[in-house]
Design a protein around this nucleic acid. Structure first.
Lengths: 233, 233
DNA sequence: GGGGCTGTGAAACAATCGTTTGAAACGTAC
DNA sequence: GTACGTTTCAAACGATTGTTTCACAGCCCC
């Protein structure tokens, strides 16, 4: 018979992935039960074990399905930025944009909790899962490390990794806790305008990453007198 | 009989809090069971429910016990910094130090997972618990918001809140995932030297917070040519 | 020596978890 | 129609969860 339903015949496997992703993003991995997932997908309780083998395997597939294209897009944008620079030093802001934008986009396309999902990937308690997710980021870490080294030729590699690490922290926190920010600031700061959030995060990241490491370890911390506080050009 | 044991008569209630804190920090809230806690504390399974009423109440008390003095210390350091500045603008780095150091200290004193615990507090899935924890930070948010507004008189309040929010993200990520950073960088970046980590984080935070918001929404992103990357006075 | 209070003990509670089972329904090829 | 591989179904499985129960020990005070 001709299928005239609005949904173009989505298979059980895909429906399971979709609703699992949604529930994982909203409530966390451990706190989402198989019964919630299968019920939400309109499938039988045994469906997950049939299609994926176990809940852990389902989680891994949920992550892989989104992280793989996201990181591919990151590398694509990075290549663009590097090509645009030619033999010159690549623009730092362009490099960081290539790193951040695909992650933020993840939160706007299909579903809207994907951004939170990515954040959770970074702090999953399960060490096995962490290693699996970390593996997805190995290429990204290497390529962006090299690109940043080109954009900031003076800084040692360790420094650059640390700063990108801090940026990732800001991204994850933004993904998970903008509701909390809105609460603490009594609605003063909201994430309604996602472009504005992206711009703010990018400004912050560029400034943080491009700073000179003036006090790496043992330089006297407040040893330069009453320096003008907000002294900026 | 005279108690000559090495431990000076630590009560069951305190032992429960200590081991719960340790296990929560190491493995997460949901994944730590009452049986692990009570067994680790050498107490009966029913002890938690007797002393605290429920597991949720235990979690809340674990958080409160550490967050309260940490935030008090933050405010104390902030007062010091403001007093030092007198009628001048307070030093931005001093203000951020007052904000960050007590949080990092939390990871060095008793136990060593307290830093991770604080990070988890910011992203607890339980909305009720989140609200409880957020309440602990209300004073801190208000006071530091005012101080930052003094240190950076030009920037609007919203911007400042956002940037501190990003800093918090970096802190939390540092607390939870330095092991992952070490893994991805193949041991290149480790958190062994905590003073060095603090210095790096502080540099990053100062640079990020003190940046001028040059492109809030629609300013042309790469409209200033091949600017020298690390070029700051 | 009793009453009251605080704390501990072992055992069981109901609920929920992820997983497994075996049979029924499905479409497809012969 | 029949056989076959795939998918779905209701039901139950054993394990583990947080919580409760009730009996018993310790202690202080009258």
């Amino acid at each position: 018979m001709p299928n005239s339903s609005p949904e173009p015949e989505i298979g059980t496997r895909e429906r399971l992935l979709d609703t699992a992703e949604e529930l994982f993003s909203a409530h966390g991995l451990r706190e989402t039960t198989m019964r919630q997932i299968t019920a939400g997908a309109g499938a039988n309780l045994a469906a997950v074990n049939y299609h994926f083998g176990s809940k852990t395997a389902l989680v891994a597939e949920v992550f892989r399905r989104r992280l793989e294209p996201m990181n591919a897009e990151r590398l694509r944008l990075l290549d663009e930025a590097l090509a645009r620079a030619g033999d010159d030093r690549p623009d730092l802001r362009a490099v960081l944009t290539a790193f951040i934008v695909p992650a933020l986009r993840l939160g706007r396309g299909a579903g809207q909790g994907l951004f939170q999902l990515m954040a959770r990937a970074h702090l999953a308690p399960d060490p096995e899962l962490r290693r699996l997710v970390a593996g997805q980021f190995e290429d990204v870490a290497r390529r962006f490390g090299a690109a940043l080294s080109l954009a900031l030729p003076g800084a040692p590699m360790d420094e650059l990794f640390w700063r990108v690490f801090f940026v990732v922290g800001s991204m994850c926190h933004t993904a998970l806790n903008t509701a909390l920010l809105s609460e603490v600031t009594h609605g003063r700061c909201t994430a309604d305008d996602e472009d504005a959030v992206l711009a703010r995060l990018l400004d912050f990241a560029v400034a943080g990453v491009s700073t000179a490491a003036h006090t790496t370890t043992s330089a006297a911390p407040p040893a330069r007198g009453p320096r003008a506080p907000g002294a900026r050009p």
